[in-house]
């Protein structure tokens, strides 16, 4: 059953940036968009299992640091080569300065 997990404080992430969040055996990437909203996706690139939080956020896009595969982190949609599979996204809520993800 999915449950709400406290991932980080809102202040932990700069605007238009991303951090890594590990929970159990899973790795997530938590984003703060230029419009100051929070999003969460699977933490590893679907191409070669590279940590996406080491990549660069540009607008709605997270770019993998290894081979520049791009995803829309709000929808998980892959944006062309070398990406074949989309990225899993997770629901996010913010309460009292804490970012929760449902996973």
């Amino acid at each position: 059953m999915p449950e709400w997990i406290a991932a980080c404080a809102t202040d932990d992430i700069d605007t238009e940036d991303v951090i890594r969040f590990d929970h159990g055996t899973q790795t997530f990437a938590i984003y703060r968009s230029p419009e100051d909203r929070f999003y969460a996706t699977a933490g590893m690139c679907t191409h070669e299992h590279t940590c996406l939080a080491d990549g660069l956020v540009m607008g709605d896009i997270i770019e993998c640091p290894k081979h520049n595969g791009r995803f829309n982190y709000k929808t998980g949609q892959g944006k062309g080569a070398p990406i074949i599979d989309n990225l899993k996204t997770y629901p996010v809520k913010v309460e009292g300065g804490t970012v929760f993800i449902e996973a």
Binding site: T50, C51, D54, G55, L56, E63, P65, K66, N68
Partner: peptide, 11 residues
């Protein structure tokens, strides 16, 4: 190590 220089090189 790892992806340490990736962001700087991308910028």
């Amino acid at each position: 190590p790892g992806n340490a220089v990736a962001r700087d090189i991308r910028v």
